[in-house]
Design a protein around this nucleic acid. Structure first.
Lengths: 165, 165
DNA sequence: ATAATTAAGGTCAGAAATGGTCAAAGTCAA
DNA sequence: TTGACTTTGACCATTTCTGACCTTAATTAT
C-alpha cells in the first residue's frame, strides 16, 4: 500500500468502518479534506476508486446544510457468493476492477490468500499481454471461469462430505 | 560480474533485498535512475534481464503518484518443487501439457483441489480464446505466473482453504 | 410565504507524477 | 566483423491531485 494521500484516506475510512460494528459510517467531505490537507474533490476520488460497488460498498450522500457521505459495506450472498458475484460481472473488466473483486473475495474469506494470489497474477496486464480491448474481455473470461470452477470445487467438496444425498 | 551500470544496479538491488527481512523491496524508478545517473528505462532493463521469473523473482509496479516497483524474491529452499517446475517450463505450453502439470501438482499435494480447479479453468482454450500460437504462449505465462504467485503467497494457518457457508 | 444566503456535496477536465515499451545506437569480446 | 549485451531517448499508459464551476438542502431575511 502506497504512501500517497489517497491510500492514507482509504486506510482511515476502512479502519473506522471496521471499528463501527454496523458496517456503516458517515463522514463529512469538507471535514475529511481538512483533516488530510487536501481538496474536497480528492475525497470523491478516493471513494470512487476504492469504495465502488465492485469493492463491496454502497455510498450515499446528501448535500446542503447537515450534509454527509455515508459508506456502507455490503456482504456477499451467504449461500452462493461466487455464483451471484459472477452473475453481476460483465463481459469486460479492467485490472483495477478485477483486483477490487479479488480484494472483496479475500475480505469475506471466500478465497484463501494463496487463491487470491493466483487470481491477482492471472488478471495482471503484463501476464495477459494482449491488446485492449481484447485484454479486458480475456480478463473477464478468466476471472469468471476461475471463480465458477472454484464454486464447483466447493460444491463437490460439500457433496462428498454428505454422501447420503 | 562486470562493472557496467546494469551490474552495479543489480548488486545494489540484491543487497537491499538481502537486508530486508521480508524478501520484498519497493523502489522508485526515477529515484534509482537519479541515484545511478542513468535513464529511467535502464531500470526496466536491469529488472527484465536480472529479476525475471527464471531468476526467481516476482516484480510488480504501480504508475502514477506514489508509484513504485516492488521486487519479491521467491524462497528457493522452501518452495523448491514449484520454482524448479516453473523454471523447467518453456514459453509455450499446450492445454494437454498444462493439464498434466496441474494433475501432477495435485497428486503431489502441492496445490489444493480448489487451486487445481482454478488452474484447469485458466488453461482451457475456450477461456483463453486467442489464436495459436499466441494462445500457447499466453497459457504458459498464466501458468508460470500463477504458480509463482502461489510460491510467493504468505502462508498462514488462517489462510487455508475453508468451505463457504 | 418567498427570496436570498449559506452550507454542504458533485463533476469533470487538465495537470502532475509515476512507470513501461521499443527500437536505434553504442560497446566489447570472441 | 559479428553477435550479444548495454545504454539511451522518444513516445505511451496509468494513477493521483487540483480547481473551477455546478447542484441541492437548510436557514435566514423580507
Amino acid at each position: 500500500m502506497g504512501n500517497n494521500i489517497s491510500d492514507i484516506i482509504e486506510r482511515y475510512l476502512k479502519r473506522i468502518l471496521q471499528q463501527s460494528q454496523s458496517g456503516v459510517i458517515e463522514v463529512q467531505r469538507s471535514e475529511l479534506a481538512e483533516l488530510f490537507q487536501c481538496v474536497p474533490s480528492q475525497i470523491n476520488y478516493v471513494i470512487s476508486t476504492r469504495f465502488s460497488v465492485d469493492h463491496g460498498y454502497v455510498v450515499e450522500s446528501k448535500r446542503g446544510g447537515g450534509g454527509y457521505i455515508r459508506i456502507r459495506r455490503i456482504d456477499l450472498d451467504e449461500h452462493a457468493p461466487l455464483v451471484s458475484l459472477v452473475r453481476s460481472m460483465g463481459s469486460t473488466i479492467s485490472q483495477r476492477e478485477a483486483e477490487s473483486v479479488i480484494d472483496r473475495l479475500r475480505r469475506e474469506q471466500v478465497v484463501s490468500e494463496r487463491e487470491a494470489a493466483m487470481l491477482r497474477a492471472a488478471v495482471r496486464r503484463e501476464v495477459l499481454n494482449v491488446d485492449l480491448p481484447y485484454r479486458d474481455e480475456l480478463r473477464a473470461r478468466l476471472l469468471t471461469q476461475m471463480l465458477l470452477a472454484l464454486s464447483a470445487a466447493v460444491q463437490r467438496a460439500e457433496d462428498d462430505a454428505r454422501p447420503q444425498r
